[in-house]
């Protein structure tokens, strides 16, 4: 060991005082027996199931329990968001390409008897307007994300309806 610097010599003599501190008499005589008793008690004790050990640990450390709850909640919330997103993407994937629908030609639209009603385009010579889709205003291409699932229209299930007014049957 290197000789200690001179300026620490007095301190080292003072530190040496701690070597004289002794535990109560008989302490070291009893200690091995106490350690052995604890080892034997631990070996004889029935194995505690893992969930009981976990609960016992939470009982001692409330902060750990709170952190665990937050973590589980976070995972649940993340999973919910993920499933919502996947559902929306799946719905968009199932959507058929937009069809070009045409308004009825003036010659074909005569459900009513002449003079009963007058449609503005009946005598209009201009071509019929082109509509992108009959349900275009209803469907939202990019639905707003929501915590709750939004009912979406399935385009493949939308049926065109034909109706007649005025007792054609």
């Amino acid at each position: 060991m290197r000789p200690e610097p001179e300026n620490h010599q007095a301190l080292l003599k003072l530190i040496a005082l701690k070597r004289y501190e002794q535990p109560p008499p008989g302490f070291f005589h009893d200690l091995p027996q106490r350690i052995r008793a604890r080892i034997e008690a631990a070996e004889l004790a029935p194995a505690v199931p893992w969930h009981e050990r976990l609960m016992a640990r939470f009982a001692v450390k409330p902060a750990l329990a709170a952190a665990f709850t937050l973590a589980v909640g976070g995972v649940y919330f993340f999973g919910l968001q993920l499933s919502d997103l996947a559902e929306q993407q799946s719905a968009l994937k199932d959507q058929p390409p937009a069809e070009v629908w045409y308004g009825a030609a003036p010659g074909n639209v005569r459900p009513f008897a002449p003079g009963f009603i007058s449609l503005p385009y009946a005598e209009d010579p201009t071509p019929p307007p082109v509509l992108s889709s009959s349900v275009a205003p209803v469907l939202e291409p990019n639905p707003q994300r929501s915590f709750f699932p939004t009912p979406m229209l399935r385009m493949d299930q939308v049926q065109r309806v034909n109706f007649s007014v005025g007792g054609s049957d």
């Binding site: 003599k13 004289y20 501190e21 002794q22 109560p24």
Partner: peptide, 16 residues
Amino acid sequence: NDLDLNAEHDPDLVAL
């Protein structure tokens, strides 16, 4: 812990 009685006879400590 209590000090060992020998501490009182340690010359370094006595001098200190």
